[in-house]
Computed example of a mutant assay.
Amino acid sequence: MAQKTGGSGRSSVHRIGSLFSNRVGRSVRNGGSDLEVDVVDSIQDLRKDRWNGIVERSSRGSAFHRYEWLEAIETGLGYTPKHLVVTKDGNAIGGMPNFVVEIEKTPFDRLSSLYPGFGGPVVPTDTSDALERIVQAVPTLCRGRTIVHQIRGLDTSYLRYNDFLQSRGYEPYRRECRFRLDLTAGHDEILANMSRTRRRGIERGRDGDYEIVEEEITRENLQRFHRTYERVMDRVGGEVYPFSFFEALQPMASRLLLLTIRIDGEYAGGMLELLDEERDSVHGFFAAIPQEYFDDHASELLYDHVFQWGIDHGYDTYDFGSTTTDFEDGVYRFKEGFGGRAVPVLVWERGCSPLWPLVKAGRAMYWPYYT
Rank of each mutant, 00 (worst) to 15 (best):
G7C: 11
R23Q: 07
N98M: 15
T5K: 13
V240M: 09
G201R: 08
V39M: 08
A287W: 01
V55F: 03
M271S: 09
F64M: 09
W69L: 07
D38W: 13
R60E: 09
D207C: 07
V100H: 05
E336Y: 07
T325Y: 00
C177M: 14
V135H: 03
D312H: 08
H313I: 05
G153A: 15
L77H: 02
A72G: 04
L274F: 14
T125M: 04
R57P: 06
G78W: 11
G269V: 06
S322Q: 10
L222V: 06
D326L: 10
V13A: 08
R206W: 05
M271F: 11
L249N: 06
Q223Y: 11
T371S: 13
P172A: 10
R168N: 15
W348Y: 13
D89I: 00
S8F: 05
D316M: 07
S59Q: 11
T324L: 01
G265W: 01
L272W: 05
Q3V: 13
D109A: 04
L257N: 03
L84Q: 04
M252I: 13
H226S: 00
C177I: 07
D155T: 02
E277A: 11
I261A: 00
S18V: 12
A342H: 00
N91W: 09
W356F: 14
G284P: 02
S8H: 12
I311S: 11
L346T: 01
Y158H: 01
H313A: 02
F327Q: 13
D45V: 06
G153K: 01
V347G: 02
A72S: 12
Y79A: 03
G314D: 03
I202W: 06
P251L: 09
A192C: 08
T218A: 04
R199K: 12
R26S: 14
L259Y: 00
S254K: 14
Y210V: 05
T371Y: 14
G90I: 03
P357E: 11
F338V: 00
Y229Q: 03
F20V: 04
P81N: 02
V345L: 15
T80K: 13
T324H: 01
E300S: 15
G119I: 00
R200T: 15
I43N: 06
I289Q: 06
I217L: 15
V347T: 14
G25V: 01
Q291H: 12
Y370M: 11
N193F: 01
A92K: 05
